[in-house]
């Protein structure tokens, strides 16, 4: 899975936001705000990655166990799927 084309991430001060551009604006006119972990996963998903890849990256980057990392990753990916931001 990966983030669909047409979402631009921007870091403004301490805030990280994602804005839809081009064809993505047809279905989504809002804005996504990302916390630090969300931004980290978003970056990973700029390329085609699996849930296991995300868990591995999270446990390497943050001081968390694999079980917690998997739950965080699943929760975030679920939101991205529901909003239609992901493609296979």
């Amino acid at each position: 899975m990966r983030i669909k084309d047409g979402f631009i991430k921007s870091n403004l001060g301490e805030e990280c936001v994602v804005v839809p551009v081009g064809a993505q604006t047809v279905d989504f006119r809002g804005l996504i705000t990302l916390n630090e972990t969300g931004e980290f996963i978003w970056e990973i998903l700029s390329e085609d990655k699996s849930l296991d890849d995300i868990v591995t990256a999270l446990t390497a980057e943050y001081d968390i166990d694999a079980q917690t990392a998997r739950k965080d990753a699943q929760d975030f990916v679920k939101i991205l799927e529901e909003k239609g931001f992901l493609e296979d």
Binding site: D5, I8, V19, P20, V21, G22, A23, V26
Partner: peptide
């Protein structure tokens, strides 16, 4: 941010 040209949207960001 026209739907037909994402480059303009990128410039807007």
């Amino acid at each position: 941010n026209p739907f037909y040209d994402k480059n303009i949207g990128i410039r807007t960001v």
